[in-house]
């Protein structure tokens, strides 16, 4: 932030959107607000607060679970519905990411809107098949995976939808870090369904460069219809390093990240079969 001259408490989505549209690039929404404080943008002079727009909710319906964008990680971690969803993986991670007094500040809309390299929630939400409910004068729903690839400024994230049908699936998130609080060198997340013998559906998600989360449908298909055996996972572990897009930066080389991709699949095998190879 440069010099903030106005802090505006929006009373509704319509109010917030109209204000942002009127002001253009000098306005920024305050969702969680944590990163807004840390990463000051000299262009921003007006902050539009969304906390009074009724976006702090978790509702379970036939089509799935919707999480309001102003819902904090702590609230997500405590939701009975989310605890039962996909083996409770999102609930567990929401209760362990960052640390306690940040989990009470970080909102799900904030992490999606910013999608910074240190946001561990986004890869897992993509693996869970989440969609986002957006508001730009009217509501529309779009897959999260697509939204983070081509997000448009000025649009408000109203909520995140977790699809129904994942009750019997296993969610998995692996963040490889040098220290507990460090930015992940590699994110890997998966959602796998099985009938006890064969895997019936799979979503494999990697962020081979921090902040660049992507779903790998081809790789995911390699698990579908296959048995929960060491041979199945060993074959995918062999293929994955060549297919996953990795990057080189000060944290790690691409070569190192490719080895982590292999290790991530081994971790998934252990998670799915309960057996360490």
């Amino acid at each position: 932030m440069g010099r903030i001259t106005e802090y505006y408490h929006a009373t509704s989505l319509e109010d917030a959107f109209a204000k942002a549209k009127q002001l253009g690039p000098v306005a920024a929404y305050v969702g969680g607000g944590v990163e807004l404080v840390l990463r000051r943008n000299p262009e921003i002079t007006v902050l539009i607060d969304l906390s009074r727009c009724g976006l702090d909710y978790i509702t379970a319906a036939r089509e799935g679970i919707e999480i309001g964008s102003q819902t904090t990680l702590t609230t997500i971690s405590r939701s009975a519905d989310i605890r039962q969803y996909a083996g409770g993986s999102l609930s567990w991670w929401a209760g362990h990411i960052a640390h306690n007094n940040l989990r009470d500040m970080i909102t799900v809309g904030g992490v999606i809107g910013r999608n910074q390299p240190w946001n561990d929630v986004v890869p897992h939400l993509v693996a869970l098949g989440a969609q986002v409910r957006l508001f730009d004068g009217a509501e529309r729903i779009t897959p999260l995976a697509g939204y983070i690839e081509a997000k448009q400024p000025g649009i408000i994230i109203k909520g995140v939808l977790l699809p129904a049908g994942n009750a019997g699936s296993n969610g998995f998130l692996w963040r490889f870090t040098r220290t507990l609080q460090d930015i992940s060198t590699l994110h890997f997340s998966a959602l796998v369904s099985s009938d006890g013998k064969l895997m019936t559906a799979a979503n494999l998600v990697f962020a081979g460069r921090p902040g660049h989360t992507a779903l790998y449908p081809g790789l995911s298909e390699e698990l579908v219809g296959k048995s929960l055996s060491h041979e199945t996972f060993a074959r995918v572990a062999e293929m994955a390093p060549d297919l996953v897009e990795v990057g080189t930066d000060l944290r790690a080389t691409g070569e190192f990240r490719r080895e982590l991709v292999r290790a991530a699949i081994v971790n998934l095998e252990e998670h799915m079969t309960g057996v360490a190879q």
Partner: peptide, 19 residues
């Protein structure tokens, strides 16, 4: 800098006071 905001602990160094 932890304080309780409506009973929940928050980092007051990252909390915009207007919020």
């Amino acid at each position: 800098c932890t304080v309780l905001l409506d009973g929940r602990p928050v980092a007051s160094c990252l909390t915009l006071v207007a919020k």
